[in-house]
Amino acid sequence: MNVIDKAIGAEAHWLMGRVMPRKFLGEVRKHLHHVAPEREKELIGAIRARAEEVEAADADMATDASSKGALAIGAVVLAAFETLLPLFDGDDRRTIRYLQHAMSPVLRRPYDLTFSTLNERDHALDKIEKTCRVMVKLYPARFEFDFQRPEPGLFEMNVRRCFWHDFFARHDATPVTTVMCAFDVNFMKAIDPAVSGLRAERTSLLSLGDSKCRFAVLETDDPLHGYGDALETRFADGEDGEDGEDGNG
């Protein structure tokens, strides 16, 4: 491993292993402070303790710095799901939807800042592609990406394999993967069609049973044509099994 790869791995470990768990638990703490203030400290402590157990049990997945960070945030999410489930009367879907809500603002500001600099009409799609190719280097080797330009006004980033999908499937909790999928909304929301002439969409997800996660950025003349997300439509409708169909844009 060269110096650049080590630096990227260290950055990913810090981001996923430290920053994301802290901010995610901060959002969870807000809810607990509202609904169970007398148990807030106890439940946060239980989540942290359970997450440590999961990390230790799944240490074989942490093969490098990036995957150690990915495992850390995955373990915290799984622990939060298990710990908070009774507060949602044992309702898996409501618990997961709340955790999606808690994950969605995590690192929103850095994404906004990164993509705001790309919201220019001059070669905007090329800039988006270049940024995505750089950012995916932060992810563990267990991820498999491919990039395509099927036509001049369309860029696709496909995730063929996902660390978190493998992790939650190992724990028989595949639908909980969608909590990590909620984080990606920041990327799509940060692309402003009114400024860049581009819109983002996610038409398929591994966590919903599709063969890939398909992210696309397309040219548009409609300044109000915001992002579209299969997670919001299909998970809300109960399509979270292993028999999903890939979207085609």
Rank of each mutant, 00 (worst) to 15 (best):
K189W: 08
F183D: 03
S116Y: 11
N186F: 03
L198M: 10
Y111D: 07
F167N: 02
D91R: 04
T95K: 11
D166L: 03
K127N: 02
E120M: 10
E144P: 01
I128F: 07
Q148Y: 10
A141S: 15
H171F: 00
T114L: 15
S104W: 02
E144Q: 15
A173L: 01
L99V: 10
A169M: 10
E129G: 06
R202K: 10
R160V: 11
G197K: 01
D192I: 00
F147E: 12
A124K: 08
A194C: 06
V185Q: 10
R199T: 14
T174L: 13
Q148H: 13
I96H: 01
Y98I: 02
L154D: 00
V176F: 06
P150V: 00
G197L: 03
D184W: 07
Y98N: 04
A200D: 07
A182L: 09
A190M: 09
L113V: 14
W164R: 00
Q148S: 12
D92W: 08
M157W: 10
P152N: 05
H123P: 00
R121F: 01
F167E: 08
H123E: 09
R202C: 13
F155T: 05
A173G: 03
F167T: 03
F143M: 15
F167L: 15
V179D: 14
P193C: 03
A194S: 13
R93I: 05
R93S: 11
F183M: 11
L198T: 05
A194V: 08
Y98G: 04
R160L: 13
I96S: 00
E120K: 14
M188P: 10
V176W: 00
